[in-house]
């Protein structure tokens, strides 16, 4: 008991230290480019925490997160450009739309086992891109849309410097980490762990497979859409290829995979490692050809899949994280919790 108290005190102390460090960071970082990378790390990590809920905790490989990312991004951009609303309102609408899509698609295909879910998420992202390219009057088609900068404007979320964006991005990141933590220790998390291990066994102890999987997919869609909305608010430019290509889906997935799935810190670690790497390769190879960063990405993906499928966070820690509960020889308490 005393042990867990000191543990808790240590944890909250660490958290306070972390928050102070993160909030003071932009005051120390004078270089605009570094701040930009910190922002990118944050929103890609948010998208990736989203993927981790369905691809990690639920064990259902989604290759269509770009669909949700795009829906969030286009909702935020369209709300501002077409209906003159705050992009924040658009972001919320986008999150709602993404949740609806996940609910609809998930209810249809999550009942199938095997690779069907993965294939249908791929198809969903293709459909979203085709629609974005087709409805030019709303989306701007292949040329995309630019959100003009009109000076400091709080409701339009336009700021003169990157610092406010940094704080927004970090707040979203905190929300994503909190969500991951909540999922991992909730009833849903244990249900998902059971499903991941053995769907038949999970069903036989009374878990509603569809309900749990669809919930996970909806949560996943919401976080990824939120990241997409922030992306367009920050970058003020949007087109179907930069938000809805398979590269986006792969990037989101890879971040969680490299860092470590089903882990509170895994996706963040992945983003911290991969985003600066992308920027470096892009900067270094820009004079040669585009595509160099994706070469690096794909090689990392292959190496991680073959040699570190549990992600680097577990290589560093050498112990399974909370979320990685396996039910076979697990403690009785957890089993009964999952079936309760």
């Amino acid at each position: 008991m005393a042990d867990s108290q000191t543990e808790a005190r240590k944890r909250s102390g660490l958290a306070v230290l972390l928050i102070m460090l993160v909030s003071l960071l932009p005051l120390v970082v004078q270089h605009g480019y570094v701040l930009r990378i910190l922002i990118m790390i944050s929103y890609f990590a948010v998208a990736s925490y989203g993927w981790d809920v369905i691809g990690g905790y639920a064990g259902q490989l989604s290759l269509g997160q770009a669909a949700f990312f795009s829906i969030g991004a286009y909702a935020a951009a369209s709300a501002y450009l077409i209906w003159k609303l705050s992009p924040a309102v658009g972001a919320l609408a986008g999150v709602g739309l993404a949740a609806l899509l996940a609910l609809g698609l998930g209810s249809l295909v999550l009942r199938l086992r095997g690779p069907y879910f993965t294939l249908s998420t791929l198809a969903a992202a293709e459909v979203v891109r085709i629609l974005l390219l087709h409805f030019k009057s709303i989306t701007g088609g292949a040329e995309g849309r630019v959100i003009p900068y009109t000076g400091f404007n709080l409701s339009a979320l336009q700021f003169a410097t990157d610092r406010p964006y940094y704080y927004i991005a970090v707040a979203l990141l905190a929300l994503a980490i909190w969500t991951s933590y909540q999922v991992s220790r909730s009833r849903l998390g244990f249900q998902l762990a059971a499903i991941r291990n053995d769907e038949d066994a999970a069903e036989s102890v009374g878990i509603n497979l569809m309900s749990a999987k669809v919930k996970a997919f909806v949560i996943s869609a919401c976080l990824t859409a939120l990241a997409g909305a922030f992306y367009v608010i920050y970058d003020r430019y949007i087109d179907p290829y930069s938000t809805c290509s398979s590269e986006v889906s792969v990037k989101i997935l890879l971040i969680a995979l490299v860092g470590g799935r089903r882990s509170i810190w895994g996706p963040l670690l992945g983003a911290v490692l991969l985003i600066p790497l992308t920027e470096l390769t892009n900067a270094y190879f820009a004079s040669i050809r585009a595509g160099a960063s994706m070469v690096v990405y794909s090689i990392i993906l292959i190496i991680v899949v073959l040699y570190a499928p549990d992600g680097l966070i577990r290589v560093l820690r050498r112990r399974p994280s909370r979320g990685a509960v396996t039910l076979q020889p697990g403690p009785k308490g957890r089993n009964s919790h999952a079936s309760a």
Binding site: S246, V250, R289, G291, A292, M294, V295, Y297, S298
Partner: peptide
């Protein structure tokens, strides 16, 4: 592999 081939072709 798919991403590797595609991006190598691009390079």
């Amino acid at each position: 592999l798919s991403v590797l081939f595609k991006s190598l072709a691009l390079v």
